[in-house]
Design a protein around this nucleic acid. Sequence first.
DNA 1: ACCTGAACACCGTTCAAGT
DNA 2: ACCTGAACACCGTTCAAGT
Lengths: 195, 195
Amino acid sequence: MPAPARTGRDRIVAAACDLLEESGVDGVTMQAAAQRVGVRAPSLYKHVRDRRALLEGVVDASMSALIERLDAARDDADARASVAGQLAALRRFAHERPQAYGLVFATTPGAPRPAPEALARSVRPLLDALTALHGPEHALDAARLVTAWATGFLAMELAGTLRLGGDIGAAWDWGLQRVVAAVSAATPGDPPNVL
Amino acid sequence: MPAPARTGRDRIVAAACDLLEESGVDGVTMQAAAQRVGVRAPSLYKHVRDRRALLEGVVDASMSALIERLDAARDDADARASVAGQLAALRRFAHERPQAYGLVFATTPGAPRPAPEALARSVRPLLDALTALHGPEHALDAARLVTAWATGFLAMELAGTLRLGGDIGAAWDWGLQRVVAAVSAATPGDPPNVL
DNA sequence: ACCTGAACACCGTTCAAGT
DNA sequence: ACCTGAACACCGTTCAAGT
């Protein structure tokens, strides 16, 4: 006599996503997730291998949501606007879902990393815009510089490390302008690594 | 009849630092730390309020070590060399003690943040160099840009997100050169935030 | 004054037993 | 085929009892 499933992997992952934002990674316990979907903790193991796999599901779902936003923010007609728009979308995501952002970008101790393909897809539109801006020569280096700056800035902002004064939004805009200018100046003929 | 102390706060924190690097934040348990100093877990509470306070001690000790290195790497005679030297020292620290670096800079979930004064002291030499490079006008913005890029880059490097190919050391040098150039171009007369 | 075992609450995970 | 209670190992923390 088969018992009907009272929950499923998708619902469990969704519950875990909510828990993450409400109480942080440590709040994503098997018991709490089970309670959300109206079941006891041991039942989850019928749908999810273990807690780590559950967090993997959360990471994947968060990456998908982020990729969607970045894609919606791209502007194939104006490369500069595309870069600015994507970075603004990234910052909006970090503000709206700080825990998910931190789980994906900050290197949480035992937490799973996003899949390489998902990471590649997430930077694709940025890579396109930077290639359009000044050729494929240093597009990868430029993308690394831009994303390193953006994720570093947002990590500091979310951690509250930017208390040294001044408007944070203005600091972001100032940095964004400088960073884009920096990579724009990187043309193939440049002398390499003089510093 | 007083019993002689068989351990002390400093030894406990030192043991926790070793544990951190060997097995990550999750490996820093009260029981493991107690075993290292030859005592039972409940005894630790005579020297440390709770696990969070222990991690605070680890963070403070790590910050002190980092500040010492950054200070040794400064070059008051050559501002550019000072910036480059400090960033190289930061990267060396991240490679030698990745867990400590991650605990301090990546926003670990429930982990304590470094004290604001320690953070201020750690950026002081960089701030000095950047002020010497192009005046106090945008020194703070410049320091934020540089540290955001560096910490973002190192977070990606430590997380293994830079698998897209190419020499990582070269990417670091390329970015470093660009970032320093970017902030050098930031003189008071610039048009603000056109992007 | 410090250390200890015992105890409690909590968590992840397994498993035999229910339907 | 899925759900459950009971059980186990582990952790942080408290506390009365030892020296």
